[in-house]
């Protein structure tokens, strides 16, 4: 069970969260202008990478906030969690208080990475 650092509540067990898929998928501003193929790209196709992956999580059993997480899909190592930018779409908010799980308090880093 993953230990996830909520940017607002700190490290919590995975069972408190719900998964929201790949981050950074931007809803097209004018869907009507898109061809069926382009719309299907937005609707169905996701990167599914082996390795680093930016994704959305919701602290559903906690503060109910959505936030971003950088997670390795092979090792499950969490690089960091971050507050979403005001621009939306799951991009990191550089100026805001993004949390680096690797350099955070001991309890967060100890369990997240190891080795």
């Amino acid at each position: 069970m993953l230990l996830i650092e909520c940017p607002w509540c700190g490290p919590r067990a995975e069972t408190e969260f719900s998964y929201g898929g790949e981050a950074g998928i931007v809803r097209p501003p004018d869907p009507d202008a898109l061809s069926d193929g382009e719309w299907a790209d937005y609707l169905f196709f996701r990167a599914n990478p082996r390795g680093a992956h930016r994704e959305l999580w919701n602290h559903a059993q906690g503060c109910r906030r959505w936030f971003g997480l950088e997670r390795d899909t092979v090792t499950y190592r969490i690089e960091r969690s971050y507050v979403l930018s005001p621009a939306g779409t799951g991009t990191p908010n550089v100026a805001d208080n993004s949390v680096d799980a690797g350099a955070g308090s001991g309890s967060a880093s100890g369990a997240g990475n190891g080795g």
Binding site: G20, A23, V26, N58, R64, R65, W66, L84, G88, T89
Partner: peptide, 11 residues
């Protein structure tokens, strides 16, 4: 609803 508010339309 919260997902759209927080991730897509925070404005």
């Amino acid at each position: 609803l919260e997902k759209w508010l927080q991730t897509e339309w925070p404005e």
